[in-house]
Every structure is written in structure tokens, then in C-alpha cells.
Design a protein around this nucleic acid. Structure first.
Lengths: 229, 229
DNA sequence: GAGTGGTCTAGACCACGCT
DNA sequence: GCGTGGTCTAGACCACTCG
């Protein structure tokens, strides 16, 4: 049957896999066969099946052919949340307030994560507000050796995070999620009872092997992160 | 300069973007120019730049050319954690214990999430153990209308999750993460103090528009999910 | 050794969306 | 309109790995 386009071919093959035409781990026809079946070139079939491999639906090996993944590999993708957008998408007004900003020696735990010894760092605490009510609390260390200009930046019109994204745009990073119990100061900052369970997201970002910043974001107890797989 | 392979070309272009050769939002040369520069065909350049677009580094538009993404889109990808693998990778022995298994009317909240009305469902509670100590507690509803065979499945050698993955391998799903406070029964099941902050991961999975299962996994307070971006 | 995917090429046509 | 990316083709050679 003639099918047009690598996307269509990809869907056609995926549908047959999902429908169970081949068992888990079983080999599917090779590219040449599909090329004949769909009356297209092998190049096009290659693109289609490569995409399925990227999705985690099939595994490919030279000479070994293409097989349906025995235990489907599932990867969840979630966009790094942007607080302003999150708030505004709910029809609320976003604002933020810097509660603390000072040079301060970096605790050992943070120094370890940022792989710094005694680089100068700036410490920031920020409250993020929706319609004037706190909904997240952020602590952040910024490595001034990597981004010296940060020290004299003005965060009245642009948040620290936005400043960093614009200044050091292409960073790698690590993310950690955990649940923490609100202590006195966190409870105060977020206006929640002490002992509340908070979702904490920690992020360390790097620019070419130098750490840029470590940030931890504490969300209110009712917060829920959602995404699809 | 002659560079071999679309991967190498992709890296070369990415390096120049990261180094700041073009500003955020600025247009980079078109495919034909790069093809000449790297002495390769335009097809190869196209593959390279498409990959950069998938990474979120550049945006492409017909006629508009290719531009460095103004606010880099970061997407975190993480593999859906498999409990057995998680435990075993730490050198501990994995086991699980089904604490409860019964047909039970589905609470409204769950019914809403699974988009079912009065489909028969099986409810399971499972404790996941590492070296005999509980490290996660799972509650699960399984839609028997979608997977009737689940009711008579035996979970002594294979977990409910593995059974489902093998039986309904290609599912879509939604994931939600939140922090919850351990109540009496959760505290008991996980052997932690009442009031502890637990990281909860809820997952709803679908097979072709029919819900398969809803599961919530409660982790011990010290648990941390990590991934890279 | 031989089968399969991985990749490249040169050329072509099309579709979108600026100008 | 026309420049740019999106896609397809037919053929080719290579690299891995299974038997």
C-alpha cells in the first residue's frame, strides 16, 4: 500500500506494533521490506523507524534487525516550569520579592554539589507570589566566578532566574525532587503551618564545566507537578 | 572546513551557538551556507540542524530561516523509574508484598481521573521492600473492563506493574508529583513517623482511550528523584 | 561472510510564510 | 514572489554483529 511521508509511515508501523502484530522482543521486517510495502525509498523508512527507536518503541541493531522493545522504555518529558508562566496561565498576577541578598560563605553541602572550593557566591532568597500570596519560596546560590556580572544586576524588572537564562543561556543541569517538612522559616515564608509537606525542586546548572547556580524551590503543600508520557 | 558526519556538524554548530557566535533570537546561516562551509550535502546539514531544533536550541521556520531560541526551551527527560531496578542498583534485594487486594467501588476522584463510570475495578495495596525494609507504598486501581485477565493474575513471581507492562505494553500516561503528609496508615505501612513528608507520584495510564490503571506511589521521606536536563 | 542498519550524496519538488 | 526549510529518491558505501 502506498503511504505518503515518513510521519505517516512511522504511524502506520507504530499502530501495527501497538495492535500487537509482533510480540514484545520480536523482530519486525527490515527497512527494505517496508520500503517495498509502502512503495517508498529505504531512506524514508529509515527515518520513520529511527523515530520509533527514539520514542523507545523499538530497538535497532545492525545485522540483528529491528525489534519491538521487550520492556517498553518509557521516558517522561517535562518542560522546566517557568513560575511566571505557571501563575499567569491560571489568570493570576505574578510578582516576586527578594527577601535576602548577601554574600555569604557557601555551606559544604552546596559547595560539593557545585564543585567549588571557595569561589565567591551570592545568596538570594526570593518569595514568588500569585495575586500577592506566596506560592513558592526560592533559595539560590550564584557562583560569581562564573557570572561576575550577577553581583551588580538589578532584579526589580527581571527575576534572577530570567537574568541567568539570558546571560548564560545554554546550560546543562541536574534536577532533584523531594518532599520536605516545613520548618519555622519556610512555614513563615510560604504562610503555611509548620510541619507541612512541601514539594522541593533543586536544580544545579552548569556552563561548560563551571557551576552557575544552585537553586531550591519550595512549593506550597497543595502544589502538584504534572506531565505526560 | 571539512567535517564528517551529521553528528559532528551538529556539535560544531551547537558549540558556536553556545559560544555566543549568534545572539539569542538571531538568525544563523541557512542550510546551503553550512553545506558549503562543511563541504557536505544540504541533506546532512538538515539532519544536524533538525536535531538542534529537537533539542530546543534553535527554532526553524520556512522562509524565516533558523534562529537561536530566544528563551531556551529546556525539557527534562527522565526514565520512568522501575522500583526493582532502583533497589537492585543500590545493591539491595528487592521484594514486594501485596497488603490488600479486593474489588471495591472506585472513589469519585479516581473515577474522574480514569474517566470511568461504574466499570469493575480491582484495588491493590503493595509494599515495596529493599532488603526487607519498606521503601515505598503503592495504591492502585485497575480497570477490569480494559484488562479483565488482571483479576485472575498471580503476583507471586511478577509484580502487578510488570504484569500490566507485559500485557498492555504501549500505554500513554499522565504523571503527577506532589508532597503529602503521612497519615496513620501510610506511616504504618512505610514505618515512618506520622506527619512525615512523603513524595507521592501518581500515574494514570491509558491504552487507546481506555484507562488501564491509576497508581500512587508514596516514597519514604529521604527519597529523592534525580535526573538531568 | 553476509545481512542489516547508519549514513552520505546530488538532485528534485513542494509548502510555508516573509516581504 | 521567492527564499527557506521539509521531504523524497535512487544509489552507494560503510560498520557492526550475528551466525
Amino acid at each position: 500500500m502506498r503511504i505518503a511521508g515518513h510521519q505517516a509511515i512511522r504511524s502506520a508501523i507504530r499502530d501495527r506494533i501497538v495492535a500487537g502484530e509482533w510480540k514484545l522482543g520480536e523482530r519486525i521486517p527490515d527497512e527494505a521490506d517496508f520500503a517495498e510495502e509502502f512503495a517508498c525509498s529505504r531512506t524514508t523508512v529509515n527515518r520513520a523507524i529511527q523515530a520509533l527507536a527514539d520514542e523507545g518503541i523499538v530497538e535497532r541493531k545492525r545485522k540483528g534487525g529491528t525489534r519491538v522493545r521487550p520492556l517498553p522504555l518509557r521516558v517522561a518529558q517535562f518542560p522546566i516550569p517557568i513560575l511566571r508562566a505557571q501563575v499567569e496561565s491560571r489568570g493570576m498576577a505574578y510578582s516576586s520579592r527578594v527577601a535576602r541578598r548577601e554574600r555569604r560563605p557557601v555551606p559544604d553541602a552546596v559547595a560539593g554539589r557545585m564543585a567549588i572550593d571557595d569561589a565567591p557566591c551570592l545568596y538570594l532568597e526570593t518569595v514568588h507570589l500569585a495575586d500577592g500570596h506566596p506560592f513558592a519560596f526560592e533559595t539560590r546560590w550564584v557562583n560569581l566566578e562564573t557570572v561576575p556580572a550577577f553581583e551588580s544586576a538589578d532584579f526589580t524588572t527581571i527575576s534572577a532566574n530570567e537574568w541567568l537564562v539570558r546571560t548564560v543561556p545554554f546550560t546543562r543541569g541536574e534536577i532533584g525532587l523531594s518532599a520536605v517538612t516545613a520548618g519555622t522559616s519556610l512555614a513563615l515564608a510560604l504562610d503555611v503551618p509548620e510541619g507541612s509537606a512541601l514539594l522541593a525542586m533543586e536544580r544545579v546548572t552548569w556552563f561548560e564545566d563551571r557551576s552557575v547556580t544552585t537553586m531550591t524551590l519550595y512549593h506550597r503543600p497543595d502544589h502538584r507537578m504534572e506531565f505526560e508520557i
